[in-house]
Structure formats: C-alpha cells, structure tokens
Design a protein around this nucleic acid. Structure first.
Length: 95
DNA sequence: AAAGTGACTAGAC
DNA sequence: CGTCTAGCCACTT
C-alpha cells in the first residue's frame, strides 16, 4: 500500500476551500497519483472525515452512487448544480 | 496466473 | 446531448 499517497491526497482534499470543487484528475496530478482511479479508491476508503464532496469527475458530475448526497452537501456550501452537473468553470479550485 | 471491477479520463462517432 | 473504446492501476476472484 502507498501510505504516502493517502496522506498527500488527504492533505490536498483538506485544503480545498468551501464553495469550490476539484476533480479526481486534478487531485491525481497534484498528489502525484499514478492514476485518477487511485484517488477515487483512496477517498472511498479514507475520505470519511474529509470534504470529499468537493471532488467531482472531469465533467463536473459526481459518481452516480454518491450523486444525491454530494450535490446536497455542495448546495449547502453555495455550489449550485445544473441538474447533476456542477459548473467547473466557476467553482473549480486552483492552487 | 488470467480475468473481473471500480468515487476515472479522453477521444471518436 | 448520448454510447463505445481504450488506457489506467490496485485489488479481488
């Protein structure tokens, strides 16, 4: 297992400010993950105490199984979604 | 060891 | 808008 990677991903996700979002791909790039899939996997396993809801897919939609809760949490922060899709052009986070 | 799986992505049509 | 393909990587069968 790659504890370092987990740590970095957690660190970065924790850094994402309320009202903004990022993508698995971005996270992977910033954290140095070998693939965005790993980021998803890491959050699934270790995202419980993190603002995981600020992480979306590349097209601005959340994973189907999480869509409901995620969109709800985002809406609570002022991130409005058009249907299932969040406008990344507006809310995308950048370091 | 080969094949399946998933909180992914980008490109083709 | 949509579906399909191929590439991706760790993990489970």
């Amino acid at each position: 297992m790659d504890e370092q990677l987990h740590e970095r991903v957690r660190e970065i996700v924790a850094t994402v400010p309320p009202g903004t979002v990022t993508t698995y791909g971005d996270l992977a790039a910033i954290a140095g993950a070998p693939s965005p899939r790993l980021v998803g996997r890491i959050l699934a396993e270790d995202g419980a105490d993190l603002p995981w809801h600020r992480v979306l897919r590349a097209d601005g939609t959340p994973a189907p199984q999480l869509a409901r809760e995620q969109l709800e949490l985002l809406r609570a922060e002022g991130v409005l979604a058009a249907g299932q899709r969040v406008d990344l052009r507006v809310h995308r986070w950048r370091a």
